[in-house]
Write a protein that binds this DNA or RNA. Structure first.
Length: 691
DNA sequence: GGCTTACTAAACAGTA
DNA sequence: GTACTGTTTAGTAAGC
């Protein structure tokens, strides 16, 4: 690549030395060719390192080019001393060439380059030095132009007083012509170079900035005074211009003042249209109509700006745009390369669109088939989706989707359908959304459910169509240890959903409420604090801590009792396995008592505490069922669960009678609702737990 | 209309 | 005293 860069630089240098303004084009084309040196279109997914490398190479090329141009300019400047009052137009052309390129880097643009850190410090220093030297040169040139203009004005005054002499008049007109051409040339070259830099990524034009071509005028080396001078000159000769003499050949591309079009295009300048020293373009009605007619039709033109990728040249009217298009975006290597890049972009977008369309079609088909299917018998409980369709989604686009995709009578609904029912209208719906629950039984949402629309939820403030419980569970299960602190759950919500970056007080409270309310969430404590795990089986059951009941546990009130019945509890609580260890001991005791096969130590050490707790609970349910059948009046203090539930595992609220007295907790442990109603929870409503 | 469920808000207590 | 965490209750809305 370095060799290629060197080659390109050399060609650029030769082009510049030939006095051609197309050097920038060569540089740019070279860069483009470099990007597809193998004859391929530029890769869309260039790696960051490759991109940085290419940018650095381009920056080097620019620096070299600037250096060459400066050398050339210095030579020319030596020939053209500002002190000379030579008014011969022929000598002004090199001056314009000399002024062109380095001036395109305004201080702001230089700062941009600095910020982008594309150039090395040495290169930047060279550029800065060049810039400073050229600033001085520019000032000298400005003085020169001012003097020249003053002389022109003097001559005009003399002509007005002494009568018009055709020869002098012609001379003045010639001077004006040369002056204006020079001005335009400088602007064009500036714009071309700036455009080149922009396309190479060395400059970025901020959206708020003025249009690209105007910037060098405002900030570059050509001050507004020059244009003001020209305005004065042309105003003085307004009457003469109507004579139709040599001014008729004054084809000035005023569009090029504000665009990067070369001087080939021509427009008759309207001196009356100048305002504030800025040249403006005379737009006849015919052109305005043309603009209106075509601006809506031509995809490359809109809002007075050329829409060619990377161009954004300002074209005052459609005619200017057409000229600009034909001249600037003619069939050449650069345009071809840009066209290929655009083709790649379009292909990528089409590919993405096709995928999304396919996905949408599959969703629609699936849901439509489901909705038209005869209502089937209720499916297995754990297969009914708990993922709910947001009200906004269903209401906003009633035709787009069947209304009841998750009704209990619907066939099995993969949970992945939940988040995929987002519509464009629902994307903009923010606010409290009541959810429609198909069943009281929960089915966990999978990672794919959220992952499918992960980016969407991350960026769009759309309330996810999942319950808090589902999201909390997902957050916990996504964690490596399958356990999260409350704050980590908060962070997961804010990280995954843009919606939860607002109204924190609301949803955080909801999370806490859900954590406390749902039996599936198990709070575990260790010496580092408390964290939450999830019992997946319990989650699928979807049971809640019942309301209107006394607190399920009061550690302070019952702690002494607990310790009295189980002295090992304190030690176990302080251990890092505060959850597993007492549970293990209790479980083993219980299983030994009930002749249940022991869990191995390895299984107890499984980090998935939720599954562990679930499995243990299942076993204990059976065990306690058996135990209760044998000794329904067993003493609470002898229950192994007393060491587990009060501190680490939630208990269902107590019956009012049982809740009374300091031993209520122990009583609860003995008559845990789990044990009471787990035996038939699949057949009976959950509420019967508390009856 | 009743029941269930989820959401929200609030109160309260414990803890750091 | 404050903020955070955890629990509980009450009210509301929506779906069944």
């Amino acid at each position: 690549m370095m060799q290629e860069s060197g080659t390109e630089t050399k060609s650029n240098g030769s082009a510049i030395q030939n006095g051609s303004s197309g050097g920038n084009h060569l540089l740019e084309c070279g860069s483009l060719r470099e990007g597809r040196s193998n004859g391929e279109a530029p890769a869309v997914d260039v790696g960051a390192a490759d991109l940085a490398h290419v940018q650095q190479q381009q920056a080097l090329q620019v620096a070299r080019q600037l250096l060459l141009q400066q050398q050339q300019q210095q030579q020319v400047s030596g020939l053209k001393s500002p002190k000379r009052n030579d008014k011969q137009p022929a000598l002004q052309v090199p001056v314009s060439v000399a002024m062109m390129t380095p001036q395109v880097i305004t201080p702001q643009q230089m700062q941009q380059i600095l910020q982008q850190q594309v150039l090395s410090p040495q290169q930047l220093q060279v550029l800065l030095q060049q810039q400073q030297a050229l600033m001085l040169q520019q000032q000298q040139l400005q003085e020169f132009y001012k003097k020249q203009q003053e002389q022109l004005q003097l001559q005009l005054l003399q002509q007005q007083h002494a009568g018009k002499q055709p020869k002098e008049q012609q001379q003045v007109a010639t001077q004006q012509l040369a002056f204006q051409q020079q001005l335009l040339q400088m602007q064009q070259l500036q714009q071309q170079h700036l455009l080149s830099l922009q396309r190479q990524g060395l400059l970025t034009i901020q959206p708020g900035q003025p249009a690209l071509p105007l910037q060098p005028l405002a900030q570059g080396m050509i001050p507004a005074e020059l244009q003001q001078l020209w305005k004065e000159v042309t105003s003085a000769h307004t009457a003469e211009e109507t004579t139709g003499n040599n001014h008729s050949s004054l084809d000035l591309t005023t569009t090029c003042v504000s665009s990067s079009a070369p001087s080939k295009t021509s427009l008759i300048m309207n001196p009356h249209a100048s305002t504030n020293g800025q040249l403006s373009v005379h737009t006849p009605k015919r052109e305005s109509l043309s603009h209106e007619e075509h601006s809506h039709s031509h995809p490359l033109y809109g809002h007075g700006v050329c829409k060619w990728p990377g161009c954004e040249a300002v074209c005052e009217d459609f005619q200017s745009f057409l000229k600009h298009l034909n001249s600037e975006h003619a069939l050449d290597d650069r345009s071809t390369a840009q066209c290929r890049v655009q083709m790649q972009v379009v292909q990528q977008l089409e590919l993405q669109l096709a995928k999304d369309k396919e996905r949408l079609q599959a969703m629609m088909t699936h849901l439509h088939v489901k909705s038209t299917e005869p209502k089937a018998a209720p499916q297995p409980l754990n297969l009914v989706s708990s993922v709910t369709l947001s009200k906004s989604a269903s209401e906003a686009s009633p035709q787009s989707l069947p209304h009841t995709p998750t009704t209990p009578t619907a066939p099995i609904t993969p949970v992945t359908q939940g988040p995929s029912v987002i519509t464009t209208t629902s994307m903009h719906t923010v606010g409290p959304i009541r959810r429609r629950y198909s069943d009281k039984y929960n089915v966990p949402i999978s990672s794919a459910d959220i992952a499918q629309n992960q980016e969407f939820y991350k960026n769009a403030e759309v309330r996810p169509p999942f319950t808090y419980a589902s999201l909390i569970r997902q957050a916990i299960l996504e964690s490596p240890e399958k356990q999260l602190t409350l704050n980590e759950i908060y962070n997961w919500f804010t990280r995954m959903f843009a919606y939860f970056r607002r109204n924190a007080a609301t949803w955080k409270g909801a999370i806490r409420t859900n954590l406390s309310l749902h039996k599936c969430f198990i709070r575990v404590e260790d010496e580092f604090g408390s964290f939450w795990t999830v019992d997946d089986e319990e989650f699928k059951r979807g049971r809640h801590i019942q309301r209107g009941r006394p607190r399920k546990y009061c550690p302070d009130e019952n702690f002494d009792e607990l310790v009295a019945h189980n002295p090992s509890l304190i030690k176990n609580m302080q251990s890092s396995h505060a959850y597993c260890t007492p549970l293990n001991a209790a479980l083993q005791a219980s299983m030994a008592e009930n002749s249940i096969p022991l869990y191995t130590t390895a299984s107890m050490g499984n980090p998935t505490l939720g599954n562990l707790a679930s499995a243990i609970r299942e076993e204990l349910n059976g065990a306690m069922e058996h135990t209760n059948s044998n000794e329904s009046d067993s003493s609470p203090g002898r229950s192994p669960m007393q060491a587990v539930h009060p501190v680490h595992v939630k208990e269902e609220p107590l019956d009012p009678e049982e809740a009374e007295g300091p031993l209520s907790l122990v009583t609860t442990a003995n008559h845990s609702p789990d044990f009471d109603h787990d035996r038939d929870y699949e057949d009976e409503p959950v509420n019967e737990d508390m009856e």
